[in-house]
Amino acid sequence: MKAQTQVCRACSGFVFALTFSLILLGAAGLQAPPVNEDSLALKEFADAVQEYVRLHKQLAGSLTPHKQSADPAKIMAYQDSLARKIQEARAGAKQGDIFTPASALRFRRLIKNHFQGPHATQSKEAIRRGDPVKVVLRVNDCYPKGVPLTTMPATLLQNLPQLPEEVKYGIVNKDLILRDTRAHLVVDFIRDVLP
């Protein structure tokens, strides 16, 4: 009888342990998959870009449509008006608003990997041959008129997140910049990211 009771106790202990383990396993199974911080950082960047593009489109919509013209003055006037509107709307904009700290870290890693990879030499040469420029940058400032746009190494562009037509990457000094292609504004930048 005593032996029977001990067996029963042992069995119930085993069943309890098994049940507890199953509950734990179940709970673990219900948890979210492991977080990929890189993906989150790039999503953060993509969301910030989308938000900027929404603002750009909204402000552009309030202007006379941007059409082809034989009069360069009209093209310039549109560009200046759009730039002014965006500058006003983003009066408090600062570095890191789009290239958030997490996404900037990811960009630094992407670019570092690129310049340690098989295209490093050609990409460095592409920048050198693309007339590198040295300009003091400030977020929400106009890209200086008459200053050439340094060529973005084509192979590097294949490794960076793609962008909508309203914004493009650029290189100034050793910084990666995000430039509004229609308003010619410096939207944001990451300092000293290029070799």
């Binding site: 013209s69 693309g130 746009l149 060529t151 292609t181 010619h184």
Partner: peptide, 13 residues
Amino acid sequence: GNHDNPDQRLYKL
């Protein structure tokens, strides 16, 4: 070219 304003694409001529 690298010296060109990308808005030249809107210049009819």
